[in-house]
């Protein structure tokens, strides 16, 4: 029975993945076709039309359709515009399994650098978010003064503000993990504030009246009603927050330099036209994000189950 139930979702999931991979391979053909035709022409293969000039303004899809002979080559180039799935997988394998995790050529090393800054930033951001939310819910002055700034802070493009934070902190001698963690926290505190405020305010007037009939103090209302009521909201925001944290760290690694982290791998890949390296770093980032969200989901399930809410 379990096998049958598993098949029920396994097959559709597999079909979707297969469809994405097929689409990806197909997309590689027009993306890489011009370079493939140039190489083929040099080796004496007849392509149509002949000559780079003649092909310059032609649509890539049309060229791909007219030259099936070069298709195979579009999936094996060294510096393709769009690398094929197997190239990315091979690069991931090469930079994780075949080098020592402490090597600078290892994605595990760079992922660890990014992960440590992300976790530090997430802890700072989530902590700040929760504290701000508690303040906002309990003080009208804070509600009026903090919330607009929190919203304004998120309208500033992080790409614009990240280099400034790095430079300013650098001038005070702060380098390494901390500046990245601060930018990461800058992105992750916001969803936590919004979700937590909503959660802490989720008890209705009746719940609050009930507390009053027992002469409960504000602290008791907070610990026994508002905080537990906010748990489902908190976890939803933490999941968004941790993903934002990772984005923040990656963005911070672009100007931070230092030659470490997945953000740096993305940057160096684009300097040297190493598209395969860029895609491998992108996948490493996605896997890291999925892992972080999965961990929080696991904690969420456990906590809500123990609370009787799931």
């Amino acid at each position: 029975m379990d096998g049958v139930a598993a098949m029920k979702w396994f097959l559709p999931v597999l079909s979707v993945v297969a469809a994405i991979v097929v689409f990806w391979y197909l997309a590689c053909v027009p993306m890489n076709v011009k370079f493939a035709m140039m190489t083929a022409e040099r080796q004496g293969v007849v392509v149509s039309p002949e000559g780079v000039q003649a092909r310059r303004d032609m649509s890539a899809i049309l060229l791909a359709v007219r030259n099936p002979v070069v298709w195979a080559d579009t999936w094996t180039q060294d510096k393709p515009r769009l690398p094929a799935p197997h190239q990315v997988v091979a690069e991931l394998w090469k930079t994780t399994a075949e080098v020592k995790p402490t090597s600078k050529r290892s994605l595990v090393f760079h992922a660890w650098v990014t992960l440590s800054a992300t976790l530090a930033g997430f802890v700072i951001g989530a902590g700040a978010g929760i504290i701000l939310a508690v303040g906002i819910v309990h003080s009208r002055a804070m509600d009026m003064s903090v919330m607009p700034w929190a919203i304004a802070s998120q309208t500033i493009p992080i790409l614009a503000i990240a280099p400034m934070i790095i430079v300013v902190l650098n001038s005070f001698g702060v380098q390494g993990l901390l500046p990245k963690a601060i930018i990461s926290a800058y992105l992750s505190f916001f969803p936590v504030v919004v979700g937590m405020v909503k959660g802490l305010r989720s008890p209705g007037p009746m719940d609050l009246d009930q507390m009053r009939t027992w002469s409960a103090t504000r602290a008791q209302t907070f610990w026994k009603l508002r905080l537990p009521a906010s748990a489902p909201y908190l976890f939803a925001s933490l999941k968004i927050g941790v993903a934002s944290s990772l984005v923040g760290t990656i963005v911070a690694e672009l100007p931070a330099g230092g030659g470490q982290g997945l953000g740096f791998r993305l940057l160096s890949g684009s300097y040297y036209g190493q598209t395969v390296q860029i895609w491998a770093a992108l996948f490493a980032t996605a896997i890291l994000a999925a892992g972080l969200v999965a961990i929080i989901s696991g904690i969420e399930r456990g906590t809500l189950k123990r609370m009787g809410l799931a």
């Binding site: 009246d209 009930q210 027992w214 026994k224 537990p228 609370m307 009787g308």
Partner: peptide, 26 residues
């Protein structure tokens, strides 16, 4: 003691836990 229109029991507390709530507060 005040009984509201809805039971207003906390979903994260057991029945005994809910009844214990005002006692904890007091």
């Amino acid at each position: 003691g005040y009984v509201f229109q809805a039971a207003g029991l906390y979903p994260w507390r057991t029945i005994a836990g809910n009844i214990r709530l005002p006692l904890e507060i007091m």
